[in-house]
Amino acid sequence: MKEKKISIVIFPGSNCDRDLFVALEKCLGTKPEFIWHNCSHVKSTDMILIPGGFSFGDYLRAGTIATKSPAIKEVIRFSKRGVPIIGICNGFQILTECGLLEGALIKNSNQLFKCEKVNLKVINNKTIFTKNYKSSEIISLPIAHSQGNYFIESDNLKKIEDNDQIIFKYSSDFGDVTEKYNPNGSVNNIAGISNKKKNVIGLMPHPERAIENFHNGIDGIKFFKNLKDLI
């Protein structure tokens, strides 16, 4: 069987591309390929990841300018074919800005960049990305962002809730999803969502920064190992 291909899209200003590469290589044993943002034709791929960072300096709004790069058209094209797409941090912002995911990510409620470890509650463990998690499993991952405050209008919130598109929520060690454990002001503590078809996922926390014994937790390993069946 032909070896499956994982792709990482790099924009000018992306800065977690290397970390993501290392994590995928370590957890899945395959080397991803990099796609430069102005690539207008991707021949084939079996999974696309959009890394964190500050694409185009996050100027205008985080992720906006990146959506005008040719590679995003390709991301959209593959997403329609059902290819799994994962956006982490800035990648999540790009996916909302280009319309593959609903809602928007605005400035943290206290206006400050925030780098810390958070707990996430797995809300939907039935997706292709999360099926190895237990229902309501608590995992812990680092966040590092200033625009991670997830916003969505209440009507649409209801829709994505009803359709089980909310994947992760910020929580306490024991799974309490309350304002106290909301690091950035996100609606209903939302940390990660998927599209309707559940082949596109975006999350603010960084699983690629929780894969080594010396990291502050290793729950990122499981996140990536979950992807094994997809490739």
């Binding site: 290397r18 970390d19 290392v22 780098c115």
Partner: peptide
């Protein structure tokens, strides 16, 4: 220091208030 990204690049072993000095792995 929560306003500083201390974990990007994935090699930070100790940052502020975890040890007397910051410790960074030499990549790979």
């Amino acid at each position: 220091f929560n306003q500083y990204d201390s974990s990007v690049m994935g090699d930070t072993i100790f940052s502020s208030e975890m040890a007397d000095a910051a410790v960074i792995r030499i990549h790979k």
